[in-house]
Amino acid sequence: MMRLLGALIVVVSLTLAVGACAPGQPMGAAGKSSTTSNTAPAASVGAIQVIEPWARPAVGGGNGAAYIVLKNGGAADKLVSAKSDVAKAVELHTMEMSGSMMQMRPVDGIDVPANGQVELKPGGYHVMLIGLNKELKPNDTFDVRLQFEKAGPVDVKVQVRQP
């Protein structure tokens, strides 16, 4: 009886201890996985579909970033530039982690692989909006023209929202 009680205490304490000490889920690596690839395209040009363009809220005069998923049903292509009246300059940038240093750099273009997709997302590639001409408020939209090397230009409406 007592032995049973002793064993019970050990089991209960082990359970408690494991519960209290269990390490948490490993923390998410930079960049959260995206589930946008099944969403209907906002625009398309040639074999390329432009999916869910969005931008963070940002202050006028400041900088902003827009993100999109580019899905390609054809041969390899490349996003070579983006233009918009919303900012004084629009550039394609990437974010790389070198050790624990975050480094943002302009890029000449963003490859869109054949029969594949590339995601522009926080912590990675983005359309950099430099010197915003107006505040970007949630639910606002603004126009961006994306220029692809092969498929050509396409106009998309970018929605401002919290990620």
Binding site: V10, A17, P23
Partner: peptide, 25 residues
């Protein structure tokens, strides 16, 4: 002896629960 087992069980419980209070979570 029975009490010894109970005491040991309690000791294990105290050790385990207090041992992981600091920072682990």
């Amino acid at each position: 002896r029975r009490w010894l087992i109970v005491a040991a069980g309690l000791a294990v419980m105290v050790l385990l629960v207090s041992g992981c209070r600091e920072n682990v979570s």
